[in-house]
């Protein structure tokens, strides 16, 4: 098992191998992702019962929570990729980071935006500077920071390293986001879904939420693979295999 994982890890380092294998994953991820998102959203938005207190406005949870979870996962993925890239100098890990940063910005922005829309009718305010909301805003700025480093530093290798270091250091923000609602008094409520306890949500509302979360992860994977493939094709554009794949000789 260990040897298999080790072999897989080494193969992952090969851009061509990654390009080929991820091409095989794509149709599955797209299919499963669309199916889960479709079922989850229709179920959640149309068939799940309204909340006893919030009425229909709670339904934004089916976008807000998946976006917020993926926003944090995406950052952790960038931090792990950054570590792998810095320690093993695996170039494809640098490229995955470049591909992931703009996705992270988008999903974090979606989470903040849907949260504000929900906050207005529920709390009575769009925004409040509590620990959860502020740490999530910091996550958005960390993503912006990584992208800014890529654009500001002309030397690609240096830019990659700078982005990796910021990603690794910024991962400290992730536990802060997660535990902000427990460590401090916040307006944002504590977690509804935890790994250790039963969710504090009725099952007919909870199951569609799980579907949309898994579906959102699939879509995130599709998006990340497509962007990484682009990165690979561009950076390996002078190699024979890319010219064969794209039917384009430079």
């Amino acid at each position: 098992m260990w040897n298999y994982l080790k072999r897989l890890y080494h193969k992952m380092g090969s851009p061509k191998w990654f390009y080929d294998i991820s091409n095989k994953w794509l149709p599955w991820l797209i299919g499963v992702g669309c199916l889960l998102m479709g079922v989850g959203l229709v179920w959640g938005l149309a068939y799940a019962p309204a909340d006893y207190l919030q009425g229909n406005s709670f339904r934004i949870i089916y976008i807000h929570v998946p976006a917020a979870i993926v926003a944090q996962s995406c950052y952790m993925l960038m931090a792990v990729a950054g570590l792998v890239a810095m320690v093993w100098r695996m170039k494809i890990a640098f490229w995955v980071m470049r591909a992931a940063a703009p996705i992270g910005v988008s999903v974090t922005a979606i989470a903040l935006f849907t949260g504000a829309i929900w906050g207005k009718p529920t709390w009575g305010t769009w925004w409040v500077w509590d620990a959860r909301l502020t740490s999530m805003l910091i996550l958005l700025f960390l993503y912006f920071g990584v992208i800014a480093l890529y654009n500001a530093i002309e030397d690609d290798e240096l830019a990659n390293k700078a982005g990796a270091i910021l990603s690794i250091v910024g991962v400290i923000n992730i536990p802060i986001i997660k535990y902000s609602v427990e460590w401090w008094n916040t307006l944002h409520q504590p977690a509804t879904i935890t790994l250790t306890k039963k969710p504090t949500m009725a099952p007919e509302m909870f199951i569609p939420l799980v579907l949309t979360i898994v579906g959102f992860y699939c879509w995130f994977a599709v998006w990340l693979i497509l962007r990484t493939q682009n990165e690979i094709l561009w950076r390996e554009r002078r190699t024979k295999w890319v010219q064969q794949v794209t039917n384009h000789v430079l």
């Binding site: 019962p49 909340d51 006893y52 305010t125 307006l187 504090t200 509302m205």
Partner: peptide, 17 residues
């Protein structure tokens, strides 16, 4: 000068309550 409602982590349909 301002009152905000805090929501808890519980979600359930009205019939249940």
């Amino acid at each position: 000068s301002e009152v905000l409602a805090k929501h808890d982590e519980k979600y359930m349909p009205p019939e249940v309550t």
